[in-house]
Amino acid sequence: MKQMTRTQLVTMAAGGSLALLLGAFLFQALGYAPCKMCLWQRWPHAAAIALGAAYMGVQTRVLCWLGAGATAITSALGAYHTGVERKWWQGPTSCTGGGDGLLGLTGGDLLPGSAVDAIVMCDAVTWQFLGLSMASYNFIFSAVLMVIWVIAARKAA
Rank of each mutant, 00 (worst) to 15 (best):
Ala72Gly: 12
Leu63Met: 11
Leu21Cys: 13
Arg154Tyr: 07
Ala53Glu: 12
Ile151Gly: 01
Arg154Phe: 03
Gln3Tyr: 05
Arg86Lys: 09
Leu39Asp: 11
Met121Glu: 01
Ala115His: 03
Gly31His: 05
Asp109Glu: 08
Asp123Ser: 02
Ala14Lys: 00
Gly97Glu: 09
Cys122Pro: 03
Cys38Gln: 04
Gly15Val: 02
Ala70Tyr: 00
Gly52Asp: 05
Gly99Val: 06
Val125Phe: 08
Ile148Gln: 05
Trp88Ile: 03
Asn138Asp: 05
Leu110Trp: 03
Leu21His: 08
Ala156Cys: 12
Ala48Phe: 02
Arg154Ile: 10
Gly16Cys: 00
Pro44Leu: 07
Gly23Met: 10
Ile151Val: 12
Asp123His: 10
Leu66Phe: 02
Trp65Gly: 09
Pro112Thr: 01
Leu102Thr: 01
Ala79Val: 13
Ala54Tyr: 10
Met4Glu: 10
Thr7Ile: 02
Thr5Asp: 04
Ala13Trp: 04
Gly131Asp: 04
Gly107Met: 13
Tyr32Trp: 15
Ala124Arg: 13
Trp88Phe: 03
Met12Ser: 03
Pro112Ser: 03
Tyr137Asn: 04
Ser114Ala: 12
Ala115Ser: 05
Thr106Ser: 15
Trp127Asn: 08
Val84Thr: 09
Gly57Leu: 14
Gln90His: 12
Val150Leu: 11
Arg6Asn: 03
